[in-house]
Each structure stands twice: as structure tokens, then as C-alpha cells.
Simulated assay, not measured.
Amino acid sequence: MSMAPHTRWLWLTALFGLAVATVDLATGSATSLIGTLLVCPLLASTQQGGRATALVSAAALALAIAISVAEDDLEQGDALLRLLVLAMASVYATWVAHRTADHRRQLEQVSQTAQRAIIKPTDFRIGGLEVSARYHSAAALSQIGGDLYAFAHTPMGLRLLIGDVRGKGLPAVHLSAAAIGHFRDAAYTQPDLLDVVRELETRLAGDLGPEDFITAVIAEVAPDHVRLVNCGHHAPLHLPAAGIPALLVPPERTTPIGLAPAPVIQQLPLAEGDRLLFYTDGLAEARDRTGTMPDVQDIASLCTGAASLESALDGVMDAVGRHTRRATSDDIALILLQPAPARVTLPQQGESDGDIDAAAPAGQ
């Protein structure tokens, strides 16, 4: 089993300290290397928090004192000076580690709050469809990414976007927000999915850097069919009520948004009980310790085995966590939908039949 990066750094620091002590004792009092032990707290401060750095600093100082006692030079001026420098370096390293960890936590909270304000988990029923969406952050500050999804209940039907912005951090969050805003505008005003893609490409030109792009699937879903375009993204998974699960691979692959895509429209009929899973590479490329990615059939069984969409997505998230042992370095965005089962709802007094199921999706 491989160690976490922080644990490896602690072991490296400990091995360095032991190596210094071994060489120093082997060469005798003629050569003193205890001054080099200040590398231990400084090295720890680059990867650890204040508490761990303080422990490493204390261990390094104790080791230096033990070496000085063993070599009987504790009372010599140069040895005391080295110990004093080591102690001062330890205090400074601990202070830096504490400040850095605190700053990192603040940035992480701001970034995650910003991203969750843009992409919120949601469950809704509208236009003869049931929809559930989930987002999971990899949680490390440097890995906060640009996974995104959005919905628009338009006269053409329910339109959705799921995508992945190239890059990490706050720039990716900013670009995700821009893409969602432009998608919602285009989804309501453009009559055709290809027009939505062209509008997104045009509007995002001012937000995309020279090397930026967004892989995306844009879909238009009705209870009896789905139309979609795929711009360099992972193919959605069709889960028929009766039949074999299949990836909706586009007949012609094209580039992501930002790189002049030329997608083609795919259309697929939907039957009662069918489900569609849209996802980002946090699911498609979730590798375990051996580099093995999730099996499509396993994901399909999780999505169809649960009665509710919410339970199905929770099961997928748990399975990914077990598969990667919570070591995934990428965010995950999921959308699962199905034609809504028929239900009978008596209108309340003053309601018309058209008001039933008129709730809008969260965040729309």
C-alpha cells in the first residue's frame, strides 16, 4: 500500500535526521553536523502544518542535544551556537507552517464555497422528467477544478450542460461560472443545439485563455427522446429498462468548446424506465492503486439497482470512494435522469392542471 504524500515527507525527514546522526557519531567530535539538522524543520514546514512541524523541530533539537552529549561537546561555544541556530530555525519553521496551513484552509474554504454556490446538488421533477445531480470536490486546494453542470427549462424542453474546464483552482471556477451563465442565455434564446454550441463558443472567446478549453455535452431531453451534442467529452451512458447499457459515443468526434468544435446531433428514443447518466472524468478516470478504472457494467448496475435517482448517485459516489480509497485527485460531477413515472396528483383549490409539477430546478 502506498503512503500519502505527507507521510512520505515525514519519513524522508526522519531518515535525513538519522543519517546526519549516524555520520556525525561515526566521524567523532572532530566533525559536527548537527547544524544540518535545521533542514528537518524547514523541510517539514513545506509540507506539514504547525503541529507536525513543531514535533519534527522538537525531535531534531533533541537529536542534536543527544549527539552533543554523546560527543561530550555540549559545553563548547560552537556547539551551543549550532543548537541555538537550530532552535531559532525550528521556531521560525513552525511559525511559517502554521501561517501557511491557516492561509491554505482559508483559500480552500473560499474556493469551495464559490464553487458550491455555482454548482449545487439538486433533485427535481419537471417536464415529465426526474433529474438528480451531484458534485464532489477532491477537496485539496490545488485540485479544486472546473467540473460543471447547469439546467434550463426552455420551450424546447429541458436542456442541460455538463462539462469539464481545463485547469484547476480559482481560474477554472471563474471559467465554469462564465460557461454556466452563457449556456443559460443561449439555451433559452437559440432554437437548435448546434446554435447553442456556436453561441457558447462566441461568448466564451473573451473568457478563454490561449490554452483553455471546455469539454462538454449539451443535451435536450423530453420524456420520449433525447437529443445531444458532444464536444470532446465522455460519452453519456444509456441505461435502458430492457436491454444492454450502452455509451452514446458520437458518430464523429470533435474538439472541445474553445477549439472550434463541429459536433453532430445524436438522437435517441427514451422509454419508461430508461435512465441516462452524464458524468465527468472524475468518474471515468477514477483509478485505484493499481491504475484500474471503474467498470462500466458496475456503474450501470449501481445506477439501475436503486429505486430513486438520489440513492443511485449516492451509491456511485460511495463506490468511487471505495475504488480509489478516497485518493481521487479529480472532482466528480454526475447527472442522472429518467422519464418521470406517471402519477396522479389532485389539484388544490385554485390550481389548474398546468400548475402541477411546475417547480423549477434548484439554481435555475
Rank of each mutant, 00 (worst) to 15 (best):
A152N: 04
A187G: 07
D185A: 10
L200T: 01
T202W: 04
H225M: 14
G145Y: 09
I180R: 13
Q143N: 06
I180H: 05
H136F: 10
Y149P: 04
A216E: 12
D212M: 07
H136Y: 06
R134V: 06
A219H: 14
R227T: 01
G145V: 12
H182G: 02
L208C: 02
A172K: 08
H225D: 10
G167D: 12
V197L: 03
P171A: 10
V221L: 14
A178V: 13
E201L: 01
V165G: 01
S142W: 08
Q190W: 04
A179R: 07
G146W: 01
I180Q: 15
F151H: 09
A205Q: 14
R166D: 05
R134G: 12
L158K: 02
A178T: 08
L194T: 08
G181N: 06
D192W: 05
A140I: 12
F183H: 00
V221Q: 05
L148I: 12
G146T: 11
V197Y: 03
G157H: 01
R159F: 04
G169F: 11
T202D: 03
A222N: 11
M156R: 07
P155Q: 06
E201G: 00
G209N: 10
R166F: 02
E199A: 15
P155M: 11
R227K: 15
A205C: 07
A186G: 02
R203I: 05
F151Q: 08
L175D: 06
G163I: 05
A219G: 11
R184F: 07
T154V: 11
T215E: 14
P155T: 15
L175R: 13
T215F: 14
D185G: 07
R184S: 09
E201T: 01
T215Q: 09
D164Q: 09
A186C: 04
D212Q: 10
Y188M: 13
I162V: 15
R184M: 08
P191M: 05
G206T: 13
T189C: 12
G209H: 13
R203Y: 11
A205F: 10
I180P: 02
H136G: 03
H225W: 10
A205R: 15
I218Y: 03
A179D: 03
S142H: 08
A140K: 05
D207T: 12
S137P: 00
R134C: 06
T202K: 01
I144N: 01
A172G: 09
D185H: 12
I162D: 08
A139N: 05
